[in-house]
Design a protein around this nucleic acid. Structure first.
Lengths: 339, 339
DNA sequence: TTGTAGGCGTTATCAA
DNA sequence: TTGATAACGCCTACAA
């Protein structure tokens, strides 16, 4: 099923080997190897000679034979989708930075759905990658099972674990409840939820929101599926407000949807935020803090998510599921509490 | 200088080798190899037996020995920074997708400055990567020289080539001129340019803008350095308008700066856009088309930039520098032409 | 069509 | 402290 890259991409000159350096320096190949290994025992004189020869040949050690022997490559596959969402791209940035700090390399896997993850990861296992961090939620137990069958350690962010995967997640349920509390505190009584498409984070946020409203004796809110993007969110909001139902408080599955909802509310219906409608987003992407947007939202601690993901993958600690706390960021799209 | 990953990241079970499969299937190792190679000559019966054995052991071919022999890995290093800017993240997405379509893998290199690129790429060359695509501009000829010394083919986007690198760039100069034309056409006469920090794209855009204004007999515009981000742009705009000078047309080095300028203009100075001030951005990031922003901008054809980058790297065509046309996107922050 | 054997560039083990 | 040698797992002749 796998195959080599079909056309040779830009052939480069063959790199010099440690043998070539050894020859030039008049030492054995093993000595060259030692010079370029961490805790080696080499005399200063020999090291000097080897380094000179290496510099002359522009020698760069080749990591592949070592990988061949140890079976460990120091390469981690990071699975990404949703590049349009700053939450994901910032997550990618942090994860990569943390991996780099640990001297691990990032192999980037780009895919829009989690359907073909298994195939892609299977392909990548040709390189003897050491593990997988998926910033994309793994939706089905079946895919999780397939991934596990690669034998690689796998961490998924904001995903179900399906009893198999290691997971790192924001406290999505708690955050949903906090959103409910805040909307009620601001006086909203006709509530709506702009939902994402099926996923762990989406359903946890929804469960937290609906659960808290029920606890507090509110009728269930209007729920409309808005996806995760601006475009879908805009249409969903128009649809929601066109039913005749006029919510005075909306919780959105993410900031992109929240921002689109604000635009639709103002431009299509001439309503004011937060006077007529309170809006709460999720993620705290940079745009949420832009002056012209100023969105109240629930912050995901991306740094913590990234740190914990790498920790779970690389340090193999006993716990397999980590929850990271959210933080409420009150800005201008909710009404400050009266008291 | 380089070294192996210090701590073993999550040891996984050793993967079965083709030899193990061969033993189980009762054939030679080379036969297994042939079964998993593209244009192999294997009898159906043997292939069948090998596949069964491979499935039983959950065998995955190891690409490393092949790389060791050929010196080509099928891995491309993609250098990224500026994750806060959708232009860069979308570029990354496209490049990765195109590489993947060619069965090339993406090794992601995250760095904020181009200063340590050489070190990072040097590290990566341990993996015998086949080339480098830098979405980060290479600022100094010195760094370009160091990169070239790795012997790897290198493509940089929106960068100077320093007579060494292959480059793919938007027609930044032409786009700057188009911005000048549009502002003048809309009637602006007191012009300003919110500049980026020193880089090829920044200076080309500035040169195009200033050049065209000069051609058309206008005095040189006010120029303020605004970096590339929202925060810096906001401060720079406040600074610009606080000098007493009141521009009625502003060209910005990128959309993030333009959006911040709009926010500052409206919120700090109570001016209207485009009535009092026309604003033009650069990139055409998704936010520029958001209803609440609706920014006139110059589109960079990211798909073309990505395609050409991979082409220049992988197909080694004669030309080393490619320019991609821009496209003017007129939205609501400029005044429609009177005629 | 299949098997045998050599080599890719390291690291690790042992002997000197 | 250094050198020789055997892996690592695959590919590619070449032989059968």
């Amino acid at each position: 099923m796998p195959s080599r890259p079909p056309r040779p991409p830009a052939a480069s000159l063959p790199q010099p080997s440690s043998t070539a350096v050894a020859r030039l320096a008049g030492v054995s190949q093993s000595t060259v190897s030692r010079v370029f290994s961490a805790g080696a025992a080499v005399s200063a004189k020999v090291r000097e000679r080897v380094m000179t020869a290496a510099a002359e040949l522009n020698y760069r050690p080749n990591a592949l034979p070592g990988i061949l022997q140890t079976g460990r490559s120091g390469i981690i596959a990071v699975v990404m989708g949703g590049f349009y969402n700053p939450f994901f791209t910032e997550s990618l940035q942090r994860v990569t930075a943390i991996l780099h700090a640990r001297r691990l390399e990032t192999m980037l896997v780009e895919t829009s759905s989690d359907g073909n993850i298994e195939e892609i990861v299977g392909d990548l296992s040709r390189y003897r990658i050491d593990g997988v961090i998926s910033l994309l939620a793994i939706g089905s137990a079946c895919v999780a099972q397939q991934l596990e069958s690669t034998g690689l350690p796998i961490v998924a962010v904001n995903s179900f674990g399906h009893g198999i995967l290691r997971t790192v997640s924001t406290d999505n349920r708690g955050a949903g409840a906090a959103a409910a509390d805040l909307l009620l505190r601001g006086g909203s009584r006709r509530l709506a939820y702009l939902a994402g498409r099926d996923s762990a984070s989406q359903s946890e946020r929804e469960a937290g929101f609906l659960g808290r409203l029920a606890e507090r004796g509110m009728p269930p809110p209007e729920v409309v599926i808005a996806g995760f993007s601006y475009e879908e969110g805009y249409d969903a909001t128009v649809k929601l407000l066109s039913t005749g139902f006029r919510p005075d408080g909306i919780f959105c599955v993410d900031d992109l949807v929240a921002i689109s909802a604000m635009d639709a509310i103002r431009q299509e219906f001439g309503l004011s935020i937060p006077e007529d409608v309170q809006v709460i987003g999720f993620d705290n992407i940079p745009m949420a803090s832009w002056r012209g947007i100023n969105l109240t939202t629930l912050n995901q601690d991306i740094e913590a998510l990234a740190v914990e993901s790498v920790h779970l993958l690389a340090d193999d600690p006993p716990q397999r599921e980590v929850t990271v706390p959210f933080r409420l960021i009150e800005r201008g799209t909710t009404r400050a509490p009266p008291g």
